[in-house]
Design a protein around this nucleic acid. Structure first.
Length: 409
RNA sequence: CGGGGUGUAGUGAAUCGGUAUCACGCUUCGUUCGGGACGAAGAGACAGGAGGUUCAAUUCCUCUCACCCCGACCA
């Protein structure tokens, strides 16, 4: 990608009312655009990052044996009445009416998944049923905040599972827990598992995945000997007073639930067991906030100049800067480097702007946060300067050395 | 919803009763070229919106809208 064709261009200052780091940098770099409070457009660069996160999630979900699908966002009232959530979850739902018919914009998909499942589930041989999708959720949050970390419309990956019995459900639940930890690890995030209450979703305890960060709005607690961290909601008075308990600010990036057969009974999601009897399926649900992850990554990986993307999700592998482009020889050489990198299958953002000083190009490279910066100029001669976004040192390498270095990762 | 804050050009700011100034960004030309360069010439704002006070309102008053922050709820 040539920077001259990049849209939109970076800006020097963020709007003054943006306080959250993630909002400032993502807005300045042109990763996102704000439509209204809690509602953002993912611009081309932001979309690339989002797709990379999706792909990591997709791979790990598929590895658990789940299959991807896509459910609708406009749901009829009737389906939500079956579980009683039309009323119970009223405050988070965006409801609409057209003529006599009432609808709701999806804030989650349990009911929709269960409806699909009950239409096709016949026998225990059909189980387990493991399906997920990645799409938009609408939630009428009481207050949006922290830039992209908490909006009223966001992308989420949600996985749903049905099983023949509790044991099977539990096995898969823990398998998903491991898959989630793998996902966060691949994103360079040090997520911890936290026990929590189920909110409007379930009365049973659930597990959250929290990334420790000052920007976090949750507080999580841990004491030596505990198997998991605990969410504030389930802490007891005595525990809160215990001086040996460690507490941290954290951002929730994922959550897993075991509903048991509660919803299956309400919606009659049943199957014929091996002895010919009718049984209700055991149900689990598992979510990851994709949009939020973009914000979390920025909150965790940045410095005073901009973002420092982990390699796995960086929009490009390298940021190539051409300086002294008025010099024909240099210009030809950068173009050649750009070409070779692309032919080698390396994703490159090439700052091909003429009449723009080096300082500005360097500042943009720092802001955008691509892991490796390459510079071709009069000074670099027939070599290329290599610098990691996270480091200070630079080194001069040949294009072959650079390609090898990038390929060997 | 309660509390607090901010709205002036694309962005950041100045003006705080006499109809708007600056910087960055943008356009054109030239000079520059290793950490947001320089010169010249331009374009761009009915001061968030409505109402009121006044001879006169960006400025004072009332209402309203938007955004940000704190609290109650959540990936």
């Amino acid at each position: 990608m040539r920077y001259s064709q990049y849209f939109p261009k970076t800006v020097k200052e963020a709007p003054k009312d943006e306080v959250a780091i993630n909002a400032k940098y993502l807005l300045r770099g042109g990763f996102i655009d704000k439509l209204m409070a809690g509602s953002y457009t993912l611009l081309p660069l932001g979309r690339i990052v989002e797709r990379k996160i999706e792909n990591i999630i997709r791979e790990e979900m598929n590895a658990t044996g789940a299959a991807e699908m896509l459910m609708p966002l406009l749901h009829p009232k009737e389906i939500w009445n079956e579980t009683g959530r039309w009323d119970k979850a009223d405050e988070v739902m965006y409801k609409l009416k057209k003529g006599d018919k009432e609808y709701v914009l999806s804030f989650t998909h349990e009911e929709i998944f269960l409806d699909v499942a009950r239409k096709h589930l016949k026998t225990y041989r059909d189980l387990p049923l493991l399906l997920y999708h990645m799409s938009t959720k609408f939630r009428s949050e009481l207050r949006v905040k922290s830039g992209i970390l908490r909006g009223r419309e966001f992308l989420m990956k949600d996985l749903y599972s049905l099983h023949t019995n509790e044991q099977e459900m539990n096995n898969y639940y823990w398998k998903v827990k491991d898959a989630y930890l793998k996902i966060f690890k691949r994103l360079n995030l040090d997520a911890v598992v936290v026990e929590a209450a189920g909110g409007v979703f379930t009365d049973a305890h659930t597990h959250e995945f929290q990334v420790r960060s000052e920007a976090g709005e949750d507080t999580i607690y841990f004491k030596k000997g505990w198997e998991y961290w605990k969410n504030k909601e389930i802490m007891t008075e005595e525990e809160l007073k215990d001086p040996e308990i460690e507490s941290k600010n954290a951002i929730e990036v994922g959550n897993i639930f075991r509903y048991g057969v509660e919803y299956s009974k309400k919606m009659d999601v049943s199957f014929t067991d091996s002895s010919g009897g009718k049984q209700y399926a055991w149900f689990g649900a598992y979510g990851i906030g994709i949009t939020r992850l973009i914000g979390v990554l920025v909150e965790i990986f940045h410095d005073d100049k901009g973002i420092i993307w982990p390699e796995a999700v960086a929009p490009y592998h390298v940021h190539l800067i051409g300086l002294n482009l008025e010099n024909e020889t240099v210009k030809k050489q950068v173009e050649k480097v750009y070409d070779s990198l692309q032919k080698a299958g390396i994703e490159v953002l090439y700052d091909d702007r003429e009449n723009v000083g080096p300082g500005e190009k360097f500042a943009d490279a720092d802001l955008l946060g691509v892991p490796v910066r390459l510079v071709v100029s009069l000074k670099s001669g027939d070599k290329v300067e290599w610098k990691k976004r996270s480091a200070k040192e630079t080194e001069l390498l040949t294009i072959e050395e650079i390609i090898n270095k990038l390929k060997s990762k």
